[in-house]
């Protein structure tokens, strides 16, 4: 069986965010996955980006002002 083309760290870094977004073609995705399984530096970079992304996804919600709650209540009551 032929070993798949290796991918270099520079190429992984260039496409890492698209990879983490799931916005990359399957061939490149598999090569990046293989690279991350073998390269500690790139794996650490990917983990850092995942952690940052997780913080962004879990930012605290803002507390809506009472005026908005009253406004929504009157809207919903009218429905």
């Amino acid at each position: 069986m032929t070993e798949p083309d290796r991918i270099r760290c520079e190429e992984v870094v260039a496409h890492l965010l698209e990879f983490l977004d799931g916005e990359i073609d399957i061939g490149r995705r598999e090569r990046i996955e293989q690279h991350l399984a073998e390269c500690r530096g790139c794996y650490s970079r990917a983990e850092f980006e995942r952690v940052l992304r997780q913080r962004l996804r879990t930012l605290d919600d803002a507390s809506p002002p009472d005026s908005l709650r009253r406004r929504l209540k009157s809207l919903l009551d009218a429905f």
Binding site: L59, D61, P64, L76, F79
Partner: peptide, 17 residues
């Protein structure tokens, strides 16, 4: 309407944020 009101109420903080 019941579904909508409950869903909106549950999401109000996130929508506003």
């Amino acid at each position: 309407r019941t579904f909508f009101c409950a869903a909106v109420e549950a999401l109000t903080d996130r929508l506003y944020g």
